[in-house]
């Protein structure tokens, strides 16, 4: 269930692959509280953070996009989650070069790494899982991807970089995301503007419905994302419906915004 929860971060999808980044800057930190519907009441179960930072290599400087999920202490005894998603991207275009996903959920462990080669449109993938007898094993593979295919973390940030103000209500767009070595199609539909109350105050937001062509996200317009209708397009609230229930992500704090 919690595995899906984090997937909720995928409530965001991308647009044109090489559009200029006018929204995301290094040093940004967004903190969310993830809640799950229990007995009709939303119960806070985990903290989700989205951070950006600069990473220098000998050749260049990249932007690191990091999303992590950590269960609150009272849940650690039941089902401890320590999930880390990272993507190293071009700071100007948000084109991904390296993606890492390190999942620790209870006794479940999974590590995925993608090295993108945009010239050959391939991804070198490493999947690491636990053996039943102890230790881990790796599965290496090469995956063919489309020209606009991205990882889930980059996609999350890409949607904030969309020119939503130029979109008409009801407009829909599909995007390709590489998840578990599979290219998934995610559909994003603009539902209009809405003013909602958040911990950051009342915010006018762009309301976007997210759907997928697989069985992870359920319901018709049940998976909705609210982005502030300003230049930062901060995701302040999201609702999701998955096979085992529904929940919400609400923002707790935001710092280091570009605008």
């Amino acid at each position: 269930m919690q595995r899906y929860l984090l997937f909720m971060l995928s409530f965001v999808v991308t647009s044109i692959s090489f559009s200029q980044n006018n929204t995301i800057a290094a040093g940004e930190k967004l903190t969310f509280s993830a809640s799950y519907n229990m007995s009709g009441l939303l119960t806070e179960i985990a903290e989700v953070t989205m951070e950006t930072s600069e990473v220098k290599t000998s050749k260049t400087t990249l932007l690191k996009l990091k999303c992590k999920a950590t269960t609150y202490s009272k849940w650690d005894g039941f089902f401890k989650i320590r999930d880390l998603y990272e993507s190293y991207v071009n700071p100007n275009t948000l084109t991904p070069y390296l993606y890492k996903r390190d999942i620790n959920e209870g006794s479940y462990y999974k590590f995925m790494q993608y090295k993108f080669n945009h010239r050959t449109k391939t991804v070198e993938s490493i999947k690491r899982k636990k053996k039943k007898i102890g230790g881990t094993y790796d599965v290496n593979s090469t995956v063919q991807i489309g020209a606009d295919t991205k990882d889930i973390v980059t996609t999350i940030y890409h949607i904030r970089n969309l020119d939503i103000h130029e979109t008409n209500i009801g407009d829909s767009q599909s995007f390709k995301v590489l998840f578990d070595n599979q290219e998934e199609t995610i559909y994003v539909k603009y539902l209009g503007k809405e003013t909602i109350s958040t911990r950051l105050g009342k915010k006018e937001c762009y309301k976007l419905a997210i759907s997928m062509n697989n069985s992870i996200l359920k319901g018709n317009n049940a998976n909705v994302l609210w982005l502030t209708a300003d230049q930062n397009k901060v995701p302040v609230y999201a609702t999701f419906k998955i096979a085992v229930g529904n929940g919400a992500l609400s923002i707790k704090s935001a710092s280091g915004l570009k605008h």
Binding site: S58, K59, T60, K64, Y88, N90, K100, K115, R119
Partner: peptide, 19 residues
Amino acid sequence: SEEEAIEDLEGLNLDDIEL
């Protein structure tokens, strides 16, 4: 993870990045 990522990035062809 970041240290390992930097090592991996050093091995990638990042010539198309125009900063």
